[in-house]
Write a protein that binds this DNA or RNA. Structure first.
Lengths: 112, 112
DNA sequence: TAGCGTTATATCCTATCAAATATAACGCTT
DNA sequence: AAGCGTTATATTTGATAGGATATAACGCTA
């Protein structure tokens, strides 16, 4: 039998979810498109959900990860802050390290 | 800000979930009670869900983890196999190791 | 000042998952 | 042979999360 081990990690602040894989994807899509609505469409996600996620991230993080603007050039938009970029970087690094670690663990276990 | 990192791991066989935290809890409850229905009640889970989980585990694992009996002494029952005990042991060990690993990682990251 | 594309927000609607319920089948016990 | 408590299974019901839709507010642009 060929067993594989999978994982999901997330960061919590005060017992509330701050950042997981889905939220990181959203942050990256916003960084690429400069817009919350375009990022949502790109990911096949409703605007409502995307907005709720960003709101949760911003209210729970030590500093905002996304800055939004209503009106103005192009109608407005959303941009990733340097702090948001740091969050992405840290999350993805730890996530990859976790995968490697677990692969070693399952091999060491010698399950049949 | 006090960030914590959380994780869930699970084992897959042929792309299907074989074992996760909830299923391990169920296996342990069956080992303690000797009965699928009692284990379900103990965990506040419906019998239907418990049965479906055990069925999924048994059909996907290399060998059965639980043996069930209809009728007979006490009406029947369910018992954990030695292979099932091994699965629990391996899962819980890797899970604990994963927690320790991630704690180190988040401290090393020095997120603020 | 009118128009635009965006964020922000409320309301309604629907699809999906799980709980609840009912019932059959089974084999030891007495 | 009747009874018991269990596994196994189908069907109905209910709750909840998310999608769809509509609309207001906003500030630059032209």
């Amino acid at each position: 039998m060929d067993y594989k081990i999978k994982s999901r990690i997330w960061i919590e602040a005060d017992g509330n979810i701050l950042l997981g894989e889905g939220r990181v994807s959203l942050l990256k899509a916003i960084a690429e498109t400069g817009s919350l609505s375009k990022a949502a469409k790109k990911l096949g996600m409703s605007y409502k959900k995307a907005w709720a996620l960003i709101d949760a991230i911003n209210t729970r993080a030590a500093k905002p990860a996304i800055v939004t603007n209503i009106g103005g050039k192009g109608g407005g938009g959303a941009t990733l802050t340097p702090y948001g970029a740091t969050l992405i970087e840290v999350f993805e690094k730890i996530n990859k390290n976790c995968w490697r670690f677990l692969d070693k663990q399952i091999k060491k276990s010698e399950l049949e």
